[in-house]
């Protein structure tokens, strides 16, 4: 049994075209998985399903063998404790009217987690490399990279088993991006990282395993290193060839 099991998931909005078709993969505890796809690949929908925000039309998503049932609120509370997320846009993922402390403590309050919340929040803040003076400040006083650190602190404060990152570095500057990827990598030693992104370079840097989605289907999966070294599917090959690289040095 894997930590996270996605089995035969189908999804479509209303009676529209299928967004996801027969998507299956498993994430082992302690692994890091990158889900790569472009717009229209269904990766955003897949993320919403993994977060329990939407129900699949068919198939199951299971954590530690127990399938998600979004209508069972006590199950969902347990699930949310174990699966937390970081979103793409650090300017809209933090409530501008809440202090940093209130933002980070939200999962603790909402999931009614026992313990010293002040200490837990301080620990999470420290883990993402922000100092304790940040707690009484508000999101607009921070840069994009710092805001994303705050969002990560919120995601790890309840010590989840799975950390879902949705394009978590796409909106950041290049040098900030490197630092946040390094932070996520460091955190993935203690929890399982699932990184949804269109950016192959970021996934290559952060994830051991990779799943490539094209128009709602998985076209290729495996160890990131193997897939990138010898991409088998034409789509993966095209994707890899499209990534702009730095020019070679002067010859």
């Amino acid at each position: 049994m894997s930590l996270l099991d996605v089995n035969g998931v189908d999804f479509s909005y209303g009676r529209g075209k299928p967004v996801l078709q027969q998507v299956s993969f498993a994430v082992e505890a302690g692994a890091s998985l990158g889900i790569v796809g472009e717009s229209g690949s269904g990766k955003t929908t897949l993320l919403r399903l993994l977060l329990g925000l939407t129900r699949p039309d068919a198939g199951t998503i299971a954590l530690n063998g127990a399938a998600i049932d979004t209508r069972d609120s006590s199950f969902m509370r347990g699930y949310r404790r174990q699966v937390q997320a970081v979103f793409q846009d650090p300017y809209s993922s933090l409530d501008p009217r809440q202090s940093v402390f209130d933002i980070i403590a939200e999962p603790l309050r909402s999931l009614r987690i026992a313990g010293d919340h002040v200490a837990l929040v301080a620990g999470a803040l420290d883990a993402v490399g922000l100092d304790a003076t940040s707690l009484r400040r508000y999101p607009h006083q921070f840069s994009g990279g710092q805001r994303q650190r705050i969002a990560i602190a919120r995601a790890i404060v309840a010590r989840p088993q799975v950390l879902l990152a949705d394009e978590a570095v796409s909106a950041l500057d290049l040098t900030t991006r490197v630092r946040i990827v390094a932070l996520l990598q460091a955190l993935s030693k203690d929890m399982t990282l699932v990184f949804v992104s269109h950016d192959l370079g970021v996934v290559a840097a952060a994830c051991r395993d990779i799943v490539v989605l094209e128009r709602g289907r998985i076209v290729e999966s495996g160890r990131t290193r193997d897939v990138l070294a010898r991409p088998k599917h034409p789509y993966t090959q095209a994707l890899l060839a499209s990534v702009p690289r730095m020019p070679e040095g002067l010859s």
Binding site: S92, S93, L94, E106, R109, S110
Partner: peptide
């Protein structure tokens, strides 16, 4: 806005 999604995934009712 994303912070509403974030609140939902944080378990807020």
């Amino acid at each position: 806005l994303d912070y509403i999604t974030a609140a939902r995934t944080s378990g807020t009712s």
